[in-house]
Design a protein around this nucleic acid. Structure first.
Lengths: 408, 408
DNA sequence: GCCTTTCGTTCATCCGAACAACCAAATCCC
DNA sequence: GGGATTTGGTTGTTCGGATGAACGAAAGGC
């Protein structure tokens, strides 16, 4: 079972049921459409046990019988499909970007049921952004079935989030310090639901691991190029968080001690070479378009000499990451996606030059499989998480008829 | 239960028993002397369940009733102690150092029952080292009780070890490439027992986490200064291995692109500034004493100017590690222990200058709690590991009467 | 159209954790 | 010092839930 941070605990029998129920639901969530036969083989449990678990989840209204999913071809009775219900649980995913905020209502299976977005004008106060987010949330729950339970809200923030309580320690672009953004959003909504915050790169990694290019890859790193540079690390299939939750801050790795000054107070951080401002300067992109650096880069058909150099720096810095974490896959998110499309050769070369042979041979660089929605899906995943740890408890505390509650 | 790499599995009832039996034994192993009452509270199981588990382990000959361990003071019947038996299972731990190899017979609880060491002369062939290790092993099992089962052999290697099969991909000091050292040792012994190999820094981290300064610290990094520089990472209480098992290779982090050439083919790796050869050059230590750099540094009473600079570099590099992994504790092993004792102030300053405030505030630098034996104890831990995953199975396959088998 | 294969369903079984009752061994307190 | 109290080991029972066998259902293969 999923030993969380607290290890050394014994397993009692309720925990077994919780765990099995949760992992079964997790499998359905991942595959969206599974057969019971697949579940028995994947989970290593008996047919009748699976039947019991499926029955319980059916009575909870989470799943229903699906079409006899044509997974296997051959003789034998086809296995009954397990499908997600329309009125099933959903979450609210919030992606706080640099210049815009995206909100989506996402159901089990990762289906976006409704989405909405709004720009963020310049540097905004937390309460302003919070009320904007609240408005967007009201929008996306409008058409939600009244009986469908809201499991929680997941918020991606481009900054350092304290693991213990979700406090935003630092969000450089937003100029936030120690902001309890979760409480702000809940206050603006007038609701009390489970709310989780996490770093954008961490969520990108999670989403790409769950439903992107990294499915089946248990050691992957999502390197996010936003205005800042950060990384989310999945190791052995779980998120690498670190003691405070700040793991993966690779933007300030020492890159060139004789380099440019960085806003962190040092000189020659990696970010000063491959950060958005550095790239913008190299391609003479006006400052106000920096938040849309990805699109700006997309408009290039040929890489410039400056971009090639930056590509090499990107690869060279990735080499440090590959050496340190030994991932099987590195997903290049944010504007790195566009950059890699342009100067992939230089990135690969920079990586190959500096990485050690052993970790190098098992790593591949990839583009995100979820395009620009990685982070949003990641936010949905952390919000769903309690449901997979204990479905019965999570559904018990979930909120029904959210629309009318929000109206009041 | 301890989900290994394979996630998504259901829990059946045998697994529950295995897990509970294993974690109970792990607790006894960690504490050496626990009361049953402590076990009930730590493991969250019922008194009678603990009694059943303890009974089973007693009948396996692993533990026995101990003195009524005086943990709690106050009213009430004192809880019976659970102690380890003399004839209980043991492992062989091997620490392959730069210039010497240490071998120990270690029992549950981490008690060194017998130990032995031999020098390694210059660059040695793997088979030579293998037969030397085999001889040392024969030595340390000499006085082992005939009925005590040998669970396995754990070997620490200063190099890159492939996780899947324990192949030594690269051991720079020994000049080994792709050496199946485990098979070599087993062949030299004429035995077939479970054998595990791992990187020395990884094992240092494990040992300091289990029984050193890092007890209770779930996110720690052991930075090992041997001839090369490497790190072992414990995150959320488990070893960070990476896809191939090479995670933590921080010696070749990019430190100063204009720096000295490194044996890895690049320029300015961190190792070129804080590696043994760099330090030896700075203090004019003769080349042949480099393997004993720790003792050489211990003989200093005052730090030289050169050492202060190196201390700063050490701290500066640690900052990258702290940013990337966000550990709660960094343990400075190998000659870094002596170096930190000399120039701790400079190390701290270098770290504080370059690390981000958030990860910095929760990290502390420490000296190893197990002195020079961290790695050796780590080797014991990985050898014991199967015993805590499934005690019954591990004892079933364990080897009894090893001495006479080795004689034949 | 029958055999084979695979799977859902049902029921009995079994394993092991939990619970309750009882007894044992210490401290506390008058 | 002796009962009250508190804590914990022991024992027998209960109960939850995974398992296994038996049977029927739904497909493909010939």
């Amino acid at each position: 079972m999923a030993t969380d941070r607290r290890a050394g605990t014994g397993t009692n029998q309720e925990a077994v049921r919780r765990h099995n129920l949760g992992t079964l639901l997790r499998h359905v969530h991942r595959a969206e459409q599974v057969s019971r036969a697949e579940l028995t083989s994947v989970m290593g449990l008996n047919r009748s046990t699976i039947a019991g678990l499926v029955g319980e989840l059916e009575s909870l209204g989470v799943i229903e019988r699906g079409v006899p999913a044509g997974g296997r071809r051959g003789a034998g009775r086809p296995s009954a499909g397990v499908a997600l219900t329309d009125q099933g649980p959903y979450v609210i995913a919030v992606d706080l970007g640099v210049d815009r905020v995206s909100v989506a209502r996402i159901g089990l299976g990762g289906t976006v049921q409704q989405r909405n977005r709004a720009p963020i004008e310049g540097v905004a106060e937390a309460w302003q952004v919070g009320s904007s987010v609240a408005t967007l949330i009201r929008g996306v729950v409008e058409d939600a079935p009244a009986s469908a339970p809201l499991v929680g809200i997941g918020i991606s923030v481009p900054g350092l989030i304290r693991r213990s309580d979700g406090l935003v320690r630092l969000a450089p672009n937003l100029e936030w310090h120690d902001v309890s953004f979760g409480s702000i959003v809940l206050a603006a909504l007038g609701l009390d639901v489970p709310i989780s915050l996490a770093n954008d790169a961490d969520l990108g990694a999670l989403a790409e691991h769950e439903r992107g290019v990294g499915v089946g890859v248990d050691d992957l790193i999502y390197v996010s190029g936003n205005v800042g540079v950060g990384a989310g690390v999945i190791s052995a299939g779980r998120r690498l968080e670190g003691a405070g939750g700040y793991a993966g801050e690779v933007g300030h790795l020492r890159f060139n001690p004789a380099g440019k000054p960085c806003h962190c107070g040092n000189r020659g951080c990696w970010e000063t070479e491959v950060g958005a401002h550095a790239i913008a300067a190299a391609i003479r992109c006006p400052e106000d378009k920096v938040p849309q650096l990805g699109e700006v880069l997309d408009s290039f058909t040929e890489p410039t000499k400056e971009l090639r150099v930056i590509g090499g720096h990107l690869g060279s810095g990735l080499a440090s990451i590959v050496n340190a974490f030994n991932p099987q896959m590195v997903v290049l998110g944010g504007y790195f996606r566009a950059l890699y499309t342009l100067v992939g050769a230089e990135v690969n070369r920079g990586l190959a030059e500096r990485a050690l042979p052993a970790p190098l041979e098992s790593v591949t660089l990839s583009l995100p499989g979820l395009a620009d929605d990685s982070v949003l899906f990641g936010a949905a995943e952390i919000a769903f998480e309690p449901l997979f740890v204990d479905p019965v408890a999570a559904l018990g505390t979930a909120l029904v008829d959210v629309r009318s509650r929000l109206a009041g």
